[in-house]
Simulated scan of single mutants.
Amino acid sequence: MTKNNIYFPNLNGVRCIAALMVIISHLELNKSYFNLENHFHEVKHLGRLGVSLFFVLSGFLITYLLIKEKEVNGRIKISFFYWRRVLRIWPLYYFIVLLSLFVLPKISLFHIPNLHLDFDTNSQFFLVCVLFICFLSNLLISIKLVPFATQTWSIGTEEQFYFVWPLLINKISNLKKWFLSIIVFYNVLLFLLSFSFLDGIKYITIIRDYSASVQLDSLTIGALGAYYFHKNDHVIKRIANDVSFVFSILVLILALLYNFQVPHFNSSFYAFLFITIILNLVYNKRLLKVLEFKPFTYLGKISYGLYMYHQIVIVLCINILLKFNFENTIPLYILSIVSTILVAGLSYEFLEKPFLKMKHKWSIFNTSTNPKTVNNISI
């Protein structure tokens, strides 16, 4: 069977930028763990926004492909979708979990001061394992920190989204109404949960943290962008133009420089900025090549590995440099980023790609963000 080609320009470049935002934030965070001079408080919002950008991008890509499949075939093959997600997400996810629980805590070069993996009881260890296995790592992070696997909280969020989303797209006809309703409902829920009179409720902190981690606004705003893009709606023509793109980039740059916050609706504010930029990058003819160059394309292709391995590599690099009494930031940044790229590249070739090749039998479309590469529609 010949599969239709779907090509989205620039999006591997977007993945690359999102991954670098997270890495920079976590470099400074890990420097703080080692009591090194750091600027974590000045850049910590970069990591949060980098993950939000990943979510918006995932919501856009997944929703577009599901809508397109439903249009072409009349329905979505749910089992095919789930198998594609399993092959893309599970191998690296569970590899990182196994390393974090059973291997890295036993190696001194991965020691983090005052941050150890200890379990009070066997039942606590069992609970951690169950939450990891069930992709509830976004719930686990509020209960127990597992060094080197904290970043998996976002994978939990995505897997929960992937479980529900094709079922929704398959059944619902008025998607725009549903997407807008979900965005409004989610923001209202977060607003209500922020009230102080709820502080006395048992587990309210965990409830608030989990609700925030679900990030339904970012994912659904990405989905809404996919809906408009697929329909070639007049909204797209208003959004995807040079003025809108330049304005969005300037607002984003200023917001990043000054850590601009929108009370109660910060996540949605940035998600709308991100989807505006993404829609311009895939629709505006003047911008179709702006991020289409080989380094960005390659880093975007291996961005899942960059995201999953960077914490491990950063700690290793810090411990190695400290053994030589070397605390300079520039060598740490260079060594950490280059090493993370190397590890992620090797992982892509030898761990991830064998599973990605198996996706073909469950694929509906030949998707690509570069005509010469396989698209990895996940973070």
Rank of each mutant, 00 (worst) to 15 (best):
L224V: 09
D242G: 14
Y304H: 07
S32G: 11
I206A: 14
S268P: 00
I133H: 12
D233N: 15
I133Q: 13
L193W: 09
F269Y: 11
I201R: 03
M308W: 00
I67G: 01
N114F: 02
N328F: 09
L131S: 03
A149G: 09
V214I: 14
S58F: 06
Q261Y: 08
L257K: 09
G74R: 03
S378P: 00
V56W: 08
L20S: 11
V262G: 00
P295N: 04
Y94M: 14
A19M: 11
E352S: 15
F324Q: 11
S142V: 02
Y93K: 09
I236K: 09
F102P: 01
L145P: 03
I6E: 08
L306S: 11
L180Q: 06
S267Y: 00
D233I: 13
K361P: 04
L180S: 07
L117F: 03
L167R: 13
Y162S: 08
T63P: 07
L250Q: 10
E69G: 14
E71W: 01
K285T: 05
F229T: 14
E327F: 09
V246C: 04
E327R: 09
V43D: 06
E42M: 09
C129T: 02
F245E: 00
L53P: 01
S267R: 04
V184T: 13
Y33S: 07
T157L: 13
C134F: 11
F163I: 11
G300F: 01
Y298K: 03
V184Y: 12
L356G: 08
G13I: 07
F54P: 14
L101W: 01
K77V: 10
W362Q: 05
N325A: 15
S137E: 07
T121A: 04
L219T: 04
F197M: 04
W362A: 02
G345T: 12
L257E: 03
W153M: 09
V164C: 11
A149T: 07
E292A: 03
I182G: 01
P91K: 10
Y283K: 06
F265N: 00
S52E: 06
N376R: 01
S181V: 11
